[in-house]
Design a protein around this nucleic acid. Structure first.
Length: 177
DNA sequence: TATACGATCACCT
DNA sequence: GGTGATCGTATAC
């Protein structure tokens, strides 16, 4: 079942955890690549100093201020793309970064740059509506088990974020499940 | 117009 | 553990 707008409109920390175990589907022509989401990170509002949007609304961060369910894709270190899903209401900048997926062949990809390479995500997907797009979307699954253990970890590479550096807003499915 | 650096990865020692 | 690649963005001048 394709996730609806209302799913992404919930609290970012909830969406980030609920996305674990869901499938990120990428359709390229006749080819379909699906990845089970195993690691996410939450970026919550302008108060969160780790959030790109904490310094105000700019061209780059505009997508995060938009309606939920849209993609926010950006280039980092001049070579890697990172894929985020915008959450919460319009005007409130928040998003979930997809950090890890497991492919159909059970290969696990950890790292936002590697995820984008595996799913062939680039800036052409920036701003697309995941609820309506034919190129990329997220599906829930019936296999979700309630006793999945979600590991909470500090976020990565955000030493500049002051007290927000210590927030455990990175979520990962227990690799032992 | 110029400069510094980042929500990273791969490869080296 | 350390470093180089490589460029869009924000900020400074």
């Amino acid at each position: 079942m394709i996730l609806a707008r209302s799913f992404f409109e919930q609290k970012t920390l909830k969406v980030a955890q609920d996305l674990l175990g869901c499938f990120l589907i990428r359709q390229i022509g006749q080819k379909k690549i699906s990845g089970r989401i195993v690691e996410t990170e939450a970026y919550c509002g302008s108060k969160d100093l780790a959030n790109h949007a904490s310094k105000g609304r700019t061209n780059r961060t505009e997508a995060m201020f938009g309606p939920p369910g849209h993609a926010y894709v950006y280039l980092i270190y001049g070579m890697h793309y990172c894929f985020n899903i915008v959450t919460e209401k319009s005007g409130y900048p928040a998003a979930v970064l997809i950090r890890g997926v497991e492919l159909d062949d059970r290969q696990t990809i950890i790292g936002p740059g590697k995820v984008c390479r595996a799913l062939k995500i680039d800036k052409s997907l920036h701003g697309v509506d995941l609820v309506k797009s034919q190129k990329i979307w997220v599906e829930d699954n019936n296999q979700r088990l309630k006793d999945w253990k979600i590991v909470k970890l500090p976020r990565v590479s955000i030493d500049y974020a002051g007290e927000y550096k210590y927030k455990r807003w990175r979520f990962r499915i227990n690799p032992n499940q």
